[in-house]
Computed example of a mutant assay.
Amino acid sequence: MTGGDRQEPDVATDSADILDRRSVAKAVVGFVIAAVLLYFLGNVVGWNDIVDALARADLRWVAVACLCTCGYLLAWTKTWQVVLDAGGITIPYRELVPTYLAATFANYTTPFGQAGGEPFIAYVLSADTEASYEESLASVSTADLMHLLPFFTFAGIGLAALAITGTIPPGASSILIGLAAIAIGVPAIVYGAWRRRDLVERIITTLARPVTTRTDRVSMERIETRIDTFYSQIARIAAEPRDLLVGIVYSYLGWICFAAPLYFAALALSLPVDPLLVAFLAPASSLAGFVPTPGGLGGVSTAMVALVVALTPVGAGAAAALAILYRATSYVFALLVCGPAALYVTARA
């Protein structure tokens, strides 16, 4: 493995911090909130209808959906590897897989993890490899931005199909506004942060200055050095367009596998859900992942039910069964796959 001089992140000093009591408490609270959301969803829709629909599910399609979940985990691990390699950090794929799975587990079990888990994921990566924290954060941030391309591509294709068929419901306006806000806001923020590096550095140092006056563990010089390292790593990655193109290909492949469990869950329940509709439903419902529950648990299912009922002739009970089965074969199954990797990486670190 190669990388810059090793700089230990300030966020923790040993692997035990990954599963400290505060993080576990937050996760427990998040899962409790998710359970309450799912409970009320079932009460509104009717648990009997949901259970009856799930009992008739074809387990063969359920198994295929679970395999697709493995597919997106492996594909997005490859995206990570390509981006890291572009930044001069060489890590064998088989060694990176458990690290990515562990980081995904942390992201999926942390409230708001989908909205801002990059610093924590960067710590997991830096603790398990020879990359510095800044190099890891730059690589993770770049990979996340690459994942936005297929996100908007598939959402756009699905939205175009809905527009052509005239099946866009009036209630979908808030979702369309959310997609548009992300499509415009994220690139604008990224471009601004890149072009106005001096402004970003002033903001960070201003916020950090009160901390540096109260402790000797953090210094302004060290913070400025880390900012420089982060921007230098981003520039180094951006200078390898061929690697970035390969990474984008794997990112698209991962998104196909990420959405596929929804399609196969519909097949398992014998529900009429078109693949083009799946292309819209998967990214649109993932906007609910910003609710304060681990992995958007509860929020994504509720959004999925509302969208399926509005866009298809499927009833509320069957739509809820579809949402639950989709999340079981994607989110829950991913936790079962990533959990052992998280324990392995923690012990190895």
Rank of each mutant, 00 (worst) to 15 (best):
G4M: 06
D5K: 15
T13I: 11
S15L: 11
A25D: 06
A35F: 08
Y39N: 10
F40D: 07
L41N: 01
D49P: 00
I50C: 03
L54H: 03
V62Q: 00
A75K: 02
W76A: 08
Q81E: 07
V83I: 13
D85K: 15
Y93H: 12
Y93W: 13
L101R: 10
E118G: 03
L125H: 08
S126T: 08
D128Q: 15
S136E: 04
T142Y: 03
I157G: 10
L159Y: 13
L162Q: 12
I164R: 14
T165G: 15
S173I: 15
S174I: 12
I182R: 13
P187I: 03
V190D: 01
L199T: 11
L199S: 10
R209M: 11
V211R: 11
T212V: 09
R217W: 06
M220A: 13
M220W: 05
R222K: 12
E224L: 13
D243F: 14
V246A: 11
S251H: 05
I256Y: 04
A265G: 13
A268T: 02
L269P: 02
L276R: 14
A282C: 05
S286K: 14
L287K: 06
T293R: 02
V300P: 06
T302I: 14
A303L: 14
V305P: 02
A310C: 09
T312E: 09
G317C: 06
G317K: 05
A323V: 02
F333E: 01
V337R: 07
V345P: 10
A349E: 02
